[in-house]
Amino acid sequence: NRLGIIYEIQGMKAVVLTSEGEFLIIRRRKDMKVGQQVSFENEDIYNV
């Protein structure tokens, strides 16, 4: 599992900021809110 803070939500995608200072786009889940810490898997990351 990886951890990140939700920075922005766009439709079915969420932008998270990881503890390494990396911004990633992941698959959104219904319970996500901006500012929330979430765990996610590598499979949830969109390749940009």
Rank of each mutant, 00 (worst) to 15 (best):
Q10T: 05
L24V: 14
I26N: 00
G35T: 03
E20G: 06
Q37W: 10
Q36C: 13
T18I: 03
E43M: 04
A14M: 12
E43T: 04
I25T: 11
R28K: 15
S19T: 14
Q36Y: 09
R29M: 06
I45E: 05
G4L: 02
M32E: 02
R28S: 15
F23E: 07
R2N: 06
I9M: 11
I25P: 05
N47V: 15
I5M: 12
L3F: 13
K30T: 10
Q37G: 04
R27C: 09
I25C: 15
I25V: 11
Q10W: 11
F23V: 12
L3V: 13
Y7S: 06
G4E: 01
I26F: 02
L17W: 14
E20C: 13
Q10Y: 09
R28D: 03
K13L: 05
I9W: 03
R28E: 02
D31V: 03
V15D: 01
L24D: 01
N1S: 08
V38W: 11
I26C: 01
M32W: 13
N47K: 03
G4K: 01
L3W: 12
D44Y: 06
R2L: 13
D31Q: 11
G35V: 00
K13C: 14
S19Y: 09
N42K: 06
G35Q: 03
Y46E: 07
N47E: 15
D44P: 10
G4I: 01
M12F: 07
I26G: 00
Q36A: 07
I45Y: 05
D44S: 03
D31N: 07
E41S: 14
I25Y: 06
N42M: 13
L24Q: 05
S39H: 15
Y7M: 13
E43Q: 04
Y7E: 04
L17C: 05
G21T: 01
D31F: 13
M12P: 14
R27H: 09
N1F: 09
A14P: 00
N47A: 05
V48I: 13
L3C: 05
G35A: 05
E8Q: 12
K30P: 09
T18K: 01
I6F: 01
D44L: 05
S39F: 08
V34P: 04
S19L: 10
K13E: 07
I9N: 01
Q10L: 06
Q36G: 04
Q36K: 05
E43I: 05
G4N: 02
N47I: 11
D31T: 13
V48F: 03
I26A: 01
I45G: 06
V48Q: 15
R2E: 04
M32K: 02
V34Q: 05
D31W: 07
E22Q: 10
D31R: 05
Y46I: 13
T18A: 02
V48W: 04
G11M: 04
F23W: 15
I45D: 04
E22T: 11
V38Q: 02
Q10P: 01
V34K: 12
S39R: 07
L24E: 03
E41N: 08
L24I: 11
N47S: 12
Q10K: 14
S39V: 14
E8M: 09
Q10F: 11
E20M: 12
G21I: 02
R27E: 09
G21W: 03
Q37S: 10
M12R: 14
G11A: 08
I5P: 00
N47L: 05
R2D: 03
M32F: 07
V34T: 05
E8N: 08
E22Y: 10
S19P: 10
Q10V: 13
V34W: 05
G35F: 05
Y7G: 01
G11D: 11
D44R: 02
F40I: 06
L17H: 09
E41R: 14
V16H: 00
N47D: 11
V16K: 00
E8G: 12
S39A: 10
R29F: 07
K30S: 13
V34D: 02
R2K: 10
K30W: 07
S19I: 08
M32C: 03
R29E: 12
I9C: 08
N1M: 13
F40Q: 01
V48R: 02
I6T: 01
I5N: 03
I45H: 04
K33Q: 14
